[in-house]
Design a protein around this nucleic acid. Structure first.
Length: 951
RNA sequence: GCGGAUGUGGCGUAAUUGGUAGCCGCGUUAGACUUAGGAUCUAAUUCCUCCCGGAGUGGGGGUUCGAGUCCCCCCAUCCGCACCA
C-alpha cells in the first residue's frame, strides 16, 4: 500500500475518539503536566494556517510529555463572548448565541482534522451558564474583598468593617455614618468597585474600553475614535496588585521581551512625594523656616504634593506645573490670571485623546499667577498649568527642572522660564544652560549648585535629598505605577451579566446560591433610546430580593424588587480564569475542587501570541493572585512557562499588468521597468511555487478572461510580498485545503519546519512538497518494493543503531528546547540514511515510530499497529531511551589547524590524550610541511575537536 | 524619544553555544527510469577564480591560537510603550 493519508488519518481520529485515548483523569500515580493553548475566539472566518501553529507546537510537547510518562492535561475551549458576534446580531437580528454556536462547530471540525490530543471532555465555553456562573462568582468575591496593604493580600471586606467599627484613622466617623455613606466609603476599598472615573468612551462601538483596547486614541476593534469621559463604571482594583505583578515576573519562565512589556505596562518608578507649600498671602506664617523644623505645628498651610523620580534635582526647580484637572487651580489662580487660566483649562479638557496625543510636541500652558515655595531653598517658584502633566499619574502636579527633564526644558524654552543646571558630568563641568540644545536627563554625574548635596554623585544625592525631606517631614519615599485599574463595565449585550442589583442606589451582589444570573434574551441588540446598554431592553430583568429570583421589570415599584445592573463584563472576564476551570470543568459546586487544583497546581506550559502581553496575561495573573489570596488557587503565578508563537503573515502573490496593454500580463523577471506595469494581487490558490495557473487565472474573474501572458520558459512567474493574512489580499491559506491535499501529518510537520515557533514568518506553501516527500519515504522504510508491510526482526547493525540513537538524542533535545524545525530536519536525515542503508529492522523502526508520533500522530499510529499485534495506541508507548554507547566511535577524525587555519585531518583514537595527540601531530608528514623546521610555540588541543598549532 | 529583538546562499533556515559556516528543505542544473510526468531515484548547487587558490555570516573596530557566536561603535528592519515627572 502507498502512503495513503486520506485513509489513515480519519481512521485513527475515529479510533482515538472511540477509545477516548485523550481522556485525562485528575488522579494518577504519574507526575502531572499541564499544557495550555490560548483558547480562540470563534470568529466567522474560520481558522487560517496561522491559528494552528501554536496548537501544533503545544500538541507536540503534550504528546511528548505523555510518552515520557506524564499525566498530561491538554484542554481546549472557546472564548465565546465578544464583539463581532454582537455586531453581526445588530445587523441581522440573529442571536449571538446562534452564530457563536455555528462558528464553534466549524472551528471544531477544522481542529479535529489536524489530529490534536485535546481532552474534549473538558471543553469550556465562556458563554455557557455553567461556566460564567464562576466568572460571576469571582466578581462577587472581588466585590466582597479589599486589599490589606499591611498583609499585602486580599481580605474579606467584613474585616475592614470590623476595623472601622473599632475605630480606624481611615474612617474616624464610621459609627455615625449612614448606610449609604458607609457603602460609599467601602467602595474605595473593594477590589471590584463602582466609581466615577475617566474612561475610554468609544461612541461608535457604544461602549467603554480598557486601556489595552485603545491604541493611539483609536479602538483596537474597528479603529474608531475614543474620547475621555467621566462615567460611573465598575473597575477592578488591579493597581493594588501592581507590586506583586512586577515581583511575580521573577518567578516565571517567560521571554525577557515579554516580561519587559509587562514591566513597562505596569510602569513602576521609585521616587519621592514632596509637599510644596503655597506662597499664599492668606497664610499667616512668619518665617518659612519655622514650618520645616518639625516642632512647631504651623497654621494649616495650603500646599500640594508632587511626585518626582529625581529628588536630587530639587535645587534646580524653576517652576511648578499642575495638570488642567488639578483641584487646586481654582483656589490659587490670581484674579488677573483667572480668565486666561479658565480658558486654557476648558480648552485642554475638551481636547480629544487623539488630538492630545497627535500634538504631544506642541507646548501649551498658562501661568496661574500663584507661587509655591521650594521647601529646601525657600525660593518662590511660579505655578503653571499645562496638559503635559497628566491627571492620572502621580499627583497630577510636578516640580519642573528644565535643565534635567526634556519636557520641562521644552516648556521653559517656550515660555522663557529660567533654566538652572544642578547636575554635571564632571564636578566642574558647569555651562550656561542658555547655550544648551537639550536637557541633560541622564541619571549620571555629580550634583552642582545644589546646596548640601553639591559634589555628590547623582545617586548619593538622590538618597541624601530624600533623607532630608523625610527628616523635615515634608515628604517621603514612594513608588508610583503607570498601571491603572481595569475598567470592567461594557455597554454591550454579549457578555457576562453582573450579578448586581441596586437598592437605594447602592449595589448589592445577588446571593451566591442564585448564580448563575442568566443572560436574558432581548429583542434588540442596540442601546435603548434612553442611552442605556442593550440589557435595558430586557423585560424580565429585575431582582426580587425576597424570593431570590429574576422577575419582570414592571415589578420594580414593589417593595422587594430592584433593578439589576445593565452593563456586562468585558472579554477578559471569561478568559481570566479559564485555565483553572479546565482542571475540573463539570463541577457545579465550586469553581474547581481543591483536589483538582492541588493535583494540577498551575499551567506548566502556556502557548499563545505575544499580543496578549498587556491584556489577558496581566488580567489572568491578577485574577489568579486574587484567587490565591482567598485560598482557591495554590500557585501565585498561573503560567509557569510561556512560549509566544510568532505571527504567521500572508505571502501575497502578484501578477504584473502592462500599463500600455491592459490585457497583457508580464512574467516577473521580464518586467524591465517597474513603472510600466501595475502589480495586481492574485489568489494564492491559483499559484503554485510562484507559477501562475494561467487558465484558472482567466476563469478567476471576468476582467481577466481575455488575459494574455508574456511567459518565461513557458511559465508565468509571480512576484510576492509579505502582508497581513487577509481575505482582501487573497493570501489566506485555509488549513483544510492543505489537509485534503497532503494530510494532517504533513501540515503539522510543515508548519513546524517553517522556522522557529517563536518567530514571525510569512506563510509560504512552497516547500510543503519536501515534507510530503519525506512522509512517502518514511512510509517506504516500513514497506518493501511491492508496498507490503515488511520489517525484519534481526539484530540491527552498529551503523543502524547509531542513526537511531543520534535521532533519539537530537529529537529529545529539540523538543525540550521547543526547537521543532530542527527536529523535522533530524527526521529527514534519519529517513535518508536508513533508506540508503535499506534498513528495515524492527529494533530501529519501532522506536522511530514513537519518536515521530508527537509530530505525525496518524502515520505513527498506523505504523505502530502494523508493527504490533496488540491493540495499544502509540500514544501509550514509552519514549525511547537514548544510549550514549551507540554513538561512541573507535577513532575520530581530528581537524588540525595551523595558525588558526584548518590544514589537514588526522585519525586518532576517540579518547586519546593530549600528549598522544601532540605526538601524533609531530609525527604526521603533513605537519612537517606546515611547521618546517620551526618548533611549535603553542599547541591547543580540545578533546574531539581541534588541534591548533601556532609556530 | 525610551525599551526589547533580529540581521547568515536565489528562498525558509542550521551550526554540538567560542572549534571545519551553510545541516535539512524549497528552487535551480544535469543525468537515470519512463509513451508521458507536476511520480521516483542519482549527482551538483555561497560567491569570485587564470581551477592554484581567494573572499565570505548587515558595516567598522576589538578580545582570542581560533568569532556567525563574546565586547565597543555605527547601519537597517521588526515589535512594544510613548508628555508616566
Amino acid at each position: 500500500m502507498e502512503y495513503n493519508f486520506s485513509e489513515i488519518e480519519p481512521k485513527w481520529q475515529r479510533f482515538w475518539r472511540e477509545q477516548k485515548t485523550y481522556h485525562v483523569e485528575n488522579n494518577s500515580e504519574k507526575p502531572h503536566y499541564y499544557v495550555l493553548d490560548m483558547f480562540p475566539y470563534p470568529s466567522g472566518a474560520g481558522l487560517h494556517v496561522g491559528h494552528p501553529l501554536g496548537y501544533i507546537a503545544s500538541d507536540i510537547y503534550a504528546r511528548y510529555k505523555r510518552l515520557c510518562g506524564f499525566n498530561v492535561l491538554h484542554p481546549m475551549g472557546y472564548d465565546a463572548y465578544g464583539l463581532p458576534a454582537e455586531q453581526y446580531a445588530i445587523q441581522t437580528g440573529q442571536h449571538p448565541a446562534v452564530t457563536t454556536e455555528q462558528n464553534i462547530k466549524r472551528y471544531r471540525e477544522q481542529l479535529d482534522k489536524i489530529g490534536f490530543c485535546f481532552d474534549w471532555d473538558r471543553e469550556v465555553r465562556t458563554c455557557e451558564p455553567t461556566y460564567y456562573k464562576w466568572t460571576q462568582w469571582t466578581f462577587i468575591q472581588l466585590f466582597n474583598h479589599y486589599y490589606d496593604e499591611e498583609l499585602q493580600k486580599a481580605r474579606p471586606i467584613s474585616e475592614l468593617v470590623k476595623k472601622f467599627e473599632n475605630g480606624d484613622e481611615r474612617a474616624p466617623e464610621w459609627n455615625t455614618m449612614s448606610d449609604k455613606e458607609q457603602q460609599d466609603l467601602l467602595m474605595n476599598y473593594r477590589l471590584a468597585y463602582l466609581a466615577d472615573i475617566p474612561v475610554n468612551w468609544c461612541a461608535e462601538l457604544g461602549t467603554v474600553l480598557a486601556n489595552d483596547e485603545v491604541v493611539n486614541g483609536l479602538s483596537v476593534r474597528g479603529g474608531y475614535p475614543v474620547e475621555r469621559k467621566l462615567m460611573r463604571q465598575w473597575s477592578l482594583r488591579i493597581t493594588a496588585y501592581a507590586q506583586r505583578l512586577v515581583d511575580g515576573l521573577e518567578q516565571v519562565d517567560w521571554t525577557d521581551s515579554l516580561k519587559e512589556i509587562q514591566r513597562n505596562w505596569i510602569g513602576r518608578s521609585e521616587g519621592a512625594a514632596v509637599w510644596f507649600p503655597l506662597d499664599a498671602p492668606t497664610t499667616s506664617v512668619d518665617s518659612p523656616t519655622s514650618l520645616y523644623m518639625g516642632q512647631v505645628a504651623p497654621e494649616p498651610t495650603p500646599s500640594f504634593e508632587i511626585f518626582t523620580t529625581r529628588p536630587d534635582t530639587i535645587f534646580g526647580v524653576t517652576f511648578m506645573v499642575l495638570c488642567p484637572e488639578h483641584e487646586l487651580i481654582d483656589q490659587i489662580t490670581t484674579p488677573e490670571q483667572k480668565a486666561e487660566v479658565e480658558a486654557y483649562v476648558t480648552w485642554a479638557k475638551n481636547r480629544s485623546e487623539r488630538e492630545r496625543q497627535a500634538e504631544v510636541k506642541k507646548v501649551s500652558g498658562v501661568f496661574t499667577g500663584a507661587y509655591a515655595i521650594n521647601p529646601l531653598t525657600e525660593e518662590k517658584i511660579p505655578i503653571w498649568v499645562s496638559d503635559y502633566v497628566l491627571a492620572g499619574y502621580g499627583t497630577g502636579a510636578i516640580m519642573a527642572v528644565p535643565a534635567h527633564d526634556s519636557r520641562d526644558f521644552a516648556f521653559a524654552r517656550h515660555f522663557n522660564l529660567p533654566i538652572r543646571q544642578v547636575v554635571a558630568l564632571e564636578k566642574d563641568a558647569v555651562s550656561d544652560p542658555a547655550t544648551w540644545e537639550e536637557s541633560m536627563d541622564a541619571k549620571t554625574g555629580y550634583s552642582v549648585n545644589s546646596g548640601f548635596v553639591t559634589g555628590m554623585k547623582v545617586k548619593d544625592a538622590m538618597k541624601a535629598v530624600i533623607d532630608r525631606i523625610e527628616e523635615l517631614g515634608i515628604g517621603h519615599r514612594t513608588v508610583n505605577f503607570r498601571l491603572r485599574d481595569a475598567i470592567f463595565s461594557r455597554q454591550r449585550y454579549w457578555g457576562e451579566p453582573f450579578p448586581i442589583y441596586y437598592k437605594n442606589n447602592i449595589p448589592y451582589p445577588i446571593p451566591e446560591e442564585c448564580l448563575p444570573l442568566l443572560l436574558p434574551d432581548i429583542s434588540e441588540y442596540k442601546p435603548t433610546e434612553t442611552g442605556e446598554p442593550p440589557l435595558g431592553h430586557a423585560e424580565v430583568w429585575a431582582w426580587d430580593e425576597a424570593n431570590r429570583k429574576v422577575v419582570s421589570k414592571s415589578l420594580i415599584d414593589n417593595k422587594n424588587v430592584f433593578p439589576l445592573e445593565l452593563n456586562t463584563m468585558p472579554g477578559f472576564a471569561g478568559s481570566s480564569g479559564y485555565y483553572l476551570r479546565y482542571m475540573d470543568p463539570h463541577n457545579d459546586k465550586a469553581y474547581f475542587s481543591p483536589e483538582a487544583v492541588n493535583y494540577w497546581q498551575n499551567v506548566d506550559l502556556y502557548v499563545g501570541g505575544a499580543e496578549h502581553a498587556s491584556g489577558h496575561l496581566i488580567y489572568a495573573r491578577f485574577w489568579n493572585k486574587f484567587l490565591f489570596d482567598i485560598g482557591l488557587s495554590v500557585k501565585e503565578e498561573p503560567f509557569q512557562k510561556l512560549v509566544n508563537q510568532g505571527m504567521i503573515q500572508g505571502r501575497t502573490s502578484f501578477v504584473y499588468r502592462s500599463k500600455e496593454d491592459k490585457n497583457l500580463y508580464i512574467s516577473k523577471n521580464l518586467v524591465k521597468d517597474a513603472d510600466s506595469v501595475s502589480p495586481i494581487r492574485v489568489d494564492i490558490n491559483i499559484v503554485d511555487n510562484d507559477i501562475l495557473d494561467t487558465e484558472r487565472f482567466r476563469q478567476w474573474r471576468p476582467e481577466f478572461a481575455d488575459a494574455r501572458f508574456e511567459l518565461e520558459d513557458g511559465k508565468y512567474v509571480c512576484g510576492w510580498e509579505v502582508e497581513k493574512m487577509s481575505k482582501t489580499y487573497f493570501n489566506v491559506q485555509n488549513p483544510d485545503d492543505l489537509v485534503a491535499k497532503y494530510g494532517a501529518d504533513t501540515l503539522r510537520m510543515y508548519e513546524m519546519f517553517l522556522g522557529p515557533v517563536e518567530q514571525a514568518k510569512p506563510w509560504d506553501t512552497n516547500g510543503i512538497e519536501g515534507v510530503f516527500r519525506f512522509f512517502k519515504k518514511f512510509w517506504r522504510l516500513y514497506h518493501n518494493e511491492n508496498n507490503q508491510f515488511c520489517v525484519d526482526d534481526s539484530e540491527p547493525s552498529k551503523a543502524e543503531l547509531k542513526i537511531l540513537h543520534q535521532t533519539i538524542k537530537k529529537v529529545t533535545e529539540d523538543i525540550e528546547r521547543f526547537s521543532f524545525n530542527t527536529s523535522v530536519s533530524t527526521f529527514m536525515i534519519c529517513a535518508n540514511e536508513l533508506a540508503s542503508m535499506k534498513c528495515n529492522k524492527r529494533a530501529v523502526l519501532e522506536p522511530l515510530a514513537i519518536l515521530i508520533a508527537p509530530f505525525a500522530p496518524h502515520i505513527a499510529e498506523e505504523l505502530w499497529h502494523l508493527l504490533r499485534s496488540d491493540n495499544q495506541s502509540v500514544c501509550d508507548a514509552k519514549w525511547p531511551e537514548f544510549d550514549e554507547k551507540n554513538l561512541v566511535e573507535d577513532s575520530f577524525t581530528y581537524p588540525v589547524s595551523f595558525n588558526g587555519k584548518m590544514r589537514f585531518t588526522l585519525d586518532l583514537p576517540a579518547n586519546c590524550t593530549q600528549d598522544e595527540a601532540i605526538a601524533a601531530v609531530k609525527a604526521a608528514p603533513e605537519a612537517q610541511k606546515w611547521m618546517g623546521d620551526k618548533e611549535p610555540k603553542k599547541i591547543i588541543f580540545v578533546p574531539k575537536r581541534i588541534i591548533n598549532i601556532v609556530c
